[in-house]
Amino acid sequence: DSWTGYTYSSVSTTSAVKGMKKITEQVEQKTGGDLSIDLHLGKTLQISSSDITQAVGDGIVDFAADFFFSGNVPIGRVLSLPMLIENDEEWAKAYKAVEPILVKAFGKQGVILLGGYRYPEQTIFTTFKIDDLTDLEGHKIRVTSPEQGHFIKEFKGAAITLSGSEVPTSLERGVIEGVLTASAGGAKKWGEFLPYNYRFAVNYGNSVIIANKDSFEALSPDAQKALRETVAKVGPETTAAFLVDEEVQKKKQSNAGMTLIAAKAGDADMARKKMIPFWESWAKENGPEYEAALKLVRDAVNK
């Protein structure tokens, strides 16, 4: 079989793309060339990042890394609720708890969820001096989801939505004064405009690795097994590579003049308390399935 592969990331040197390349190479090798995947990088196929789930479900793409799936599989957003998951350990527990729900939700879209990888925690990068969360008051912070927006508003900041391509100039000129991202993610591109990094983990972002259901079922059982096993192995390797890169980037950004500020003791407890009613109202608004998913995660991480 010859598959079309796609990833939202357009940077060939990032851990995310390296991981996807590794998967295609290893699968081709393991299946003796029976399954070859032609991997296209982000933006080359003119398919928006937020349309990848649909592209895979409709069979336009057979295999993909998908970060922006929340329009198709909104229940996955439970994993990105601010302050619900605060470290690697909690992430592992929470993901394990909701994985069956995700598999089912992707299945409904005609998509097989094979695995995934996770970015390091999204922290707060600003152009102004920040020592704790109260310093967000009155500042314009770019957010990428309504949930992040709620977090910023909770601390009296202004949550701004802005196209990614406009972020660097907007930071330079003060249209926005901060972003939520990972050091090994957006800060790699925008770090030069961001003199301060408050190391406070607001939420995590994860990518799923998915395949079209019909294409997958048309594979021989051996090829299916090879693909599943490779993703199961390389996915966590990619997560680990990101964690290594996060440290490298932190050092690099610090050397370039960025001030890294450790999270203030007590900020996390205070923020979590503020977020609990939001999680609940978020789940209630979205329906019983979401309430069940939230409960699973909260039980898993004891919150």
Binding site: S50, F68, N72, Q109, T161
Partner: peptide, 18 residues
């Protein structure tokens, strides 16, 4: 029709059905 049958919406504050 694909977006309609998938119930796909924009992951924004408006949640526009796409």
């Amino acid at each position: 029709f694909s977006s309609l049958s998938r119930g796909k919406f924009a992951p924004t504050v408006l949640r526009t059905p796409l």
